[in-house]
Amino acid sequence: MSQPARRDVLKSLALGGGLTLIVGPVAHALAPRPPGQPADPATRWALLVDTRACKVDCAACVDACNREMGLKQPTDPDFDPAHDAQYIRKVTLRDPDTGHTTAPPVMCQHCAKPPCVDVCPTGASMQRADHIVQVDKHLCIGCRYCMMACPYKARSFVHQDLTDQKPHNPRGKGCVESCNLCVHRIDRGEPPACVAACQRDGGGAMVFGDLADPNSDLNRRLAEAGGHRIRADLGLDTGVYYQGL
């Protein structure tokens, strides 16, 4: 894992005097990957959520995710909050001292050191070379140890038979699933559905990009305004940053 830590990237940014030349990994812009080519280990796909631009009552990202992945919407009449899958959810946060309220979306945080991958007995929970954390559902035996291990409650278990799944998101009874940053879209050169929807219909709060690419928009914004990571104390080196929390 020769992944440059974010700190180092920031440091080299500072040393290089802002956005000038940096010797290091080449820039990895979002582009369709040609058939036959594996995911690139020099990439670290990541998200940035600017909660100041994220409206409390907007759920464009959740909506888009559920539609893309073929999940039920929380607004559906037959939605079962205890059992139905939620890859992404809006968590309403109220500061008891000031009363200030935000509602950032929370999804799989795509840890660089994912506990779900560590605990999975079969290796079904896995990290792709480009640092996307996902379930290889062909190996998942449904033990749910990953759900016990995830600090973010990012995972869901499929509790019953499903029909009419989306061809790009096969899912079925007895396996665990979660946000995979829309691998199928990334591999086609498109950003995750939630990000696309947030840019289009939402407040433009979500940014998708390559954390390993110092010139990415994501890194530029982080260098400008910093970022917070959920439960950073656990040292999991998550790939989802929040601003304005």
């Binding site: 991958v117 560590d118 605990v119 999975c120 007995p121 079969t122 290796g123 079904a124 190996l139 998942c140 035996i141 449904g142 033990c143 749910r144 140890y145 278990f157 499929v158 009874k173 007895g174 396996c175 665990v176």
Partner: peptide, 25 residues
Amino acid sequence: DLGRPDRLTVAMTHYNFKSIFAWNI
């Protein structure tokens, strides 16, 4: 209780040696 007990063979042929679960097997 497994979600997919039919895949027990998977559990016996694929080990993640970092997993304490696999060690327990």
